[in-house]
């Protein structure tokens, strides 16, 4: 994470002074974006950079659902299965993905291409069902749309 420190320093300029720990979640997110996951060495680096105890970082890592300690597939397919999406076909999409990818939610395809996850509400209820692929929302997805989407992700 050391090469990201200049970026973190820039973030500090808009924060009240003396409260650097605010950067914990922003740093973790940025590190994950950079490396794909958060490594032990990153935690050590943050302990030193932010001056906070390691346990505080580990608590946060295990609390926030988007943060991960291990690498995942190239494409992270996160299917919302909350109320509105389920009312618009999310459960069928999940079954379709399980069938097509041959993995259960929480698993990665052996070729490392896809990781399938189910998630709770993504705030895309009006355009349900939604699948989040890495950062991007794919909304109003039909079965055919989903097939076409998978084709585009290599």
């Amino acid at each position: 994470m050391k090469h990201l420190i200049p970026e973190f320093e820039r973030l500090k300029t808009r924060l009240p002074p003396g409260h650097d720990a605010t950067l914990l979640v922003p740093c973790l997110r940025r590190i994950q974006e950079d490396r794909g996951f958060i490594d032990n060495s990153d935690i050590d680096g943050l302990v030193e950079y932010l001056g906070i105890p390691r346990i505080q970082i580990e608590e946060a890592l295990s609390f926030y659902g988007m943060l991960r300690r291990k690498p995942i597939g190239r494409w992270h397919l996160q299917v919302c299965r909350n109320v509105s999406c389920s009312m618009r076909g999310a459960e069928r999409l999940i079954d379709q993905l399980i069938g097509k990818l041959g993995v259960q939610p929480g698993e990665t395809t052996p070729d490392g291409r896809f990781t399938l996850s189910t998630v709770e509400c993504l705030g895309s209820c009006g355009t349900a069902p939604v699948v989040m692929v890495n950062e991007a929302y794919h909304e109003n997805l039909s079965a055919a749309d989903l097939d076409a989407l998978l084709e585009r992700l290599d």
Binding site: R14, T22, P26, F63, G65
Partner: peptide, 11 residues
């Protein structure tokens, strides 16, 4: 000053 703080997945 304004800081945009992005959460990390916790309702």
């Amino acid at each position: 000053d304004l800081f945009v703080f992005r959460g990390a997945g916790a309702y």
